[in-house]
Amino acid sequence: MFAGFGGQGVVTAGYITGQAAAVYDDRECSFTRVYGPEARGSACYSGVVVDEEEIDYPYLLNPEIMVIMSQEAYEKFLSKLADGGLLIIDSSIVRLDERAEKYKRYNVPATQIAEKMGARVVANVVMLGFVGRIWRGVSVDGLRESVKATVPTRHLDLNLRAFERGIELAEKAIESAPA
């Protein structure tokens, strides 16, 4: 699940992930998104279900990995995360509390990193790089191809740099806290 506030690209991040799994990794996949007014401004999310077999249920029921990019989304959606799930937060925005303690956590200052790269809007792509390296549901190469296929050409270079930066952060996180 990618959750945040409308405009952060959580729907786009989910779509890119789903496309990577379906088209480039050739796995079964279902992508759904919040639809309607809540997709702008307030807390919203998109969900990706990936499997080797036909998808039984198109919506996310017990997400095993959750990327949270706003405090409101944290308050609203954290309880959906499955026990033992993986919680990735944008640590430049979200403050954790004791509810997060039961999950395996990663802090990624995605928005701060994106701002340093010159565009806050690529924070979601930093997260994609991180997710690609951490999560078994999708391959890094598939995600990279999917980013290329989705992002407008004039912004591609920036997005690919943001993506690689996300992978680097994940490598460091894995080294410092082995699973």
Binding site: G18, E28, S30, T32, Y35, Y59
Partner: peptide
């Protein structure tokens, strides 16, 4: 239905 129309898949 909305479910099929608004979910993406392979």
């Amino acid at each position: 239905s909305e479910t099929v129309g608004h979910s993406a898949g392979k």
